[in-house]
């Protein structure tokens, strides 16, 4: 919750100084960095889902990477909607804050869904993978 308040204050500061070239540069770098990191984590997630050996390890990759990368990409979207507006008014800032609320929702919902899937797998007694190569 505190992060949200901080983000809204940050948005207010940005909206005061949006047309300054330094602020534009910083915003550009932030957007590119978070978008690139988000895409990288998404790629890592899909590699993990394809390459890990069993149900639990695959969901480990899916749950963690998916949440983080979605949050990073949505943050980039939120900043981009602030940056690309011609005139900053209430509707633009409101759109950016709405994307922040979606981030909150995913932050709660996605790990819970992963937990529910793992629990269902555990209850239906799926055997976890064991590394037989090192044991022998």
């Amino acid at each position: 919750m505190a992060i949200n308040v901080l983000a809204v204050i940050l948005f207010a500061i940005i909206s005061q100084t949006i047309h300054h070239p330094t602020v534009q540069l910083i915003l550009n770098i932030l957007i590119m960095a978070s978008l690139g990191l988000g895409l990288f984590f998404f790629f890592a997630t899909s590699v993990g889902v394809l390459r890990f050996p069993d149900f639990f390890t695959r969901l480990h990759a899916a749950g963690k990477g998916d949440t983080l990368s979605t949050i990073l990409i949505l943050l980039a979207c939120s900043l981009f909607s602030l940056k690309s507006a011609k005139t900053l008014d209430q509707t633009t800032i409101l759109a950016a804050i709405k994307i922040l609320l979606i981030i909150n929702f995913i932050f709660i919902g996605s790990p819970t869904a992963t937990h529910a899937l793992i629990e269902a797998g555990y209850n239906s007694e799926i055997d976890p993978w064991e590394n037989n190569a090192t044991r022998n």
């Binding site: 929702f105 709660i108 937990h115 529910a116 629990e119």
Partner: peptide
Amino acid sequence: DNLIIRVASRFMVPF
């Protein structure tokens, strides 16, 4: 009887 799912959904449903 899963506490995490119940608490999370109790938090999310009003929103």
